[in-house]
Design a protein around this nucleic acid. Structure first.
Lengths: 169, 169
DNA sequence: AGCAACCAGTTGCAAATCAAGATCAGTTTG
DNA sequence: CAAACTGATCTTGATTTGCAACTGGTTGCT
């Protein structure tokens, strides 16, 4: 599993972020938990748009839990199930993921359906990011639930685009 | 060298950004060109804080040029030298790198000297990012030079921290 | 002209990491 | 009790990494 988490190439904050998250899968897993509401191993494995392999997923989950970006607890409804939750550090990745989405939408061949969330999040800006983080805290850390559901807004916009596209065919 | 650039795991903008930049070195190279004013192979190789290997550097430069994030031209002063420049897409990574720096500064063991730039860039926010991007366009794309030099501000702040720290010993 | 230093990479190799698919043992459901 | 589900692990082969030596050429100095 990657390198040791207590040895670092340098103390540069950008480098350290890269050492933690700079691979092809870690942020995909966080994205799916954050935006896709996945909480279990199977959900992450089978509902993944990109098709992650089970051993890689197992590695990444361990790595992220060790690094404090996810927490893992038993599911009371099923003795073997585990529930993965975001932590405060990973919730604070919202602005970073928003910027990544914004950049990818502009400079990479992103599909329209999958871009609408990034577009909304970019337009909403920091105020929307704050509301989204508040919502994630309530979902993952158990804080009181806020009035606004950014997740619902994103999902509604996504469904609207899918509906509009299929109606034209 | 990584995978083919025209096959994608999915059309998700976050995924596409990750496919382009999600490895341990690509963004380090861009960071050094952007903030460290390095323009030649040797400068990137020997002045790297993290110690990149020459073959990995050669790979990444090719990869980034192919992907349109860097451009490469001959140095008129030395027949064998090449000059690497940022392009508009990589200049638009400024907000992303600013967010990465901000996150790493908060949630990773970043050193004080190397964090001061991230701190300044975070405080300056989008207006400062815009000025910085304008400066980078002038340095790398040859547009008219703007009045403000964010690079100079960052460097001054860095030197001030280094001076303050060594004076206390 | 001769020579050392510099330049942008390339090559070879061992070790680590990654990806795909089959498999596993315990758990729940019908 | 059997089938399906759960979070993984194992095996195997391909890819990537880090390291060091090396290449073919350029430049500056004497």
């Amino acid at each position: 599993m990657k390198q040791a988490q207590d040895e670092h190439r340098s103390g540069c904050p950008i480098n350290l972020t890269l050492e933690m998250l700079g691979d092809r899968w870690s942020l995909i897993v966080i994205r799916d938990i954050m935006f896709g509401r996945r909480r279990h191993f199977r959900e992450l494995l089978t509902q993944s748009e990109e098709g992650i392999a089970s051993n890689v997923l197992a590695d990444r989950l361990k790595w992220l839990v060790t690094g404090g970006l996810l927490s893992r607890r038993d599911d009371p409804s099923h003795r073997q199930k585990a529930i993965y939750s975001l932590t405060e550090p990973s919730i604070q990745l919202v602005p970073l993921l928003a910027q990544m989405g914004a950049w990818g939408r502009r400079h990479a061949p992103a599909s329209r359906e999958l871009s609408i969330r990034a577009e909304l999040l970019e337009e909403g800006g920091p105020p929307m990011w704050r509301d989204f983080m508040e919502e994630l805290r309530s979902l993952h850390l158990g804080t009181p639930s806020p009035g606004r559901s950014v997740l619902a807004e994103l999902q509604a916009a996504y469904l609207a685009v899918v509906a509009r596209d299929s109606e034209g065919d």
